[in-house]
Amino acid sequence: MTSMETDVASSSRVVIPGESLFPSAEDLRPGKGTYELHGHIYSSLLGYVYVREDTTDSRNIRVIEVRRNEERHQHVSPHIGAIVTAKVINIGPRYAKCQLLSVEDTILGGDYTALLRKEDIRSTERDKIEISECVLPGDILLARVISFGDTVTSFLISTAEEQLGVVMATGETGEKMMTKDWNTVQGVETGRVETRKIAKVPNLNLHSTTKAK
C-alpha cells in the first residue's frame, strides 16, 4: 500500500463528520475520510486527523486524512479495484451471489453484496464455464471489485486473475475442504475431491486445526 510511514500522528484531534478541519490551500489536499466544500476541508468520518506528506508530482503536498484507527487506514466501503474477501451465498446459472466480508484488511460493517458473473470467473475460456465447477455456496473467495451494481451496496466482482479465486471451500455435503492442488479441493474429513477455481495464494494456515469457523 502507499507509504504510511511518514504519517504524523501524535495526539491527534478527534473529529466528527462535518467538522471543518482547515481552510483550503494550494498545498493541502483532502484525502480519505475528508472532502472539500466551499473553500474548506471537512471531515466525513468519525476519527482522528492525520497529515501525510506526499511528494509525487515534485510538489510538497500535505494530505489530510481522517482515520478511525490510529495505525492504519480503514476502508468504509468497497471501492473499484479493491481486493475483497467474499463468501458465496447462492449460485445461479449465470452468476454467483456473494456477501462481501472485508475490503483488503478492513472487516466490513455493513451488508454488502456482490455479483460474480460467469464470464468474470476465469480469464480463459470465459464462456464455456460451469459455475458449479468453480464456486459453490459457502466458499470464501478473494476477488476484485470491478464496478458498482444496481444499488449503493451491491457490486460486481471478478476472479479473473491467477491470484484470485477460492481460498477456502465448503463441499456439496457441507464439509470444510482444503485446497489440494491447482484445481481441486479435498474434504478435510471425508477426503472427497471437488473442482474449484482456486486462488494461487500460499496457504499459510496448514498448521491450523481450529474447528471454529
Partner: peptide
C-alpha cells in the same frame, strides 16, 4: 489459546499480500 490461534491465523487477504511481496 483461542486468542493465540486467532492471532496466528492468516487471513486470505494477508496471504495475498504476502504473495505480492514475494
Amino acid at each position: 489459546s483461542i486468542v493465540k490461534e486467532l492471532e496466528e491465523w492468516v487471513s486470505p487477504y494477508e496471504c495475498y499480500q504476502i504473495l505480492e511481496k514475494r
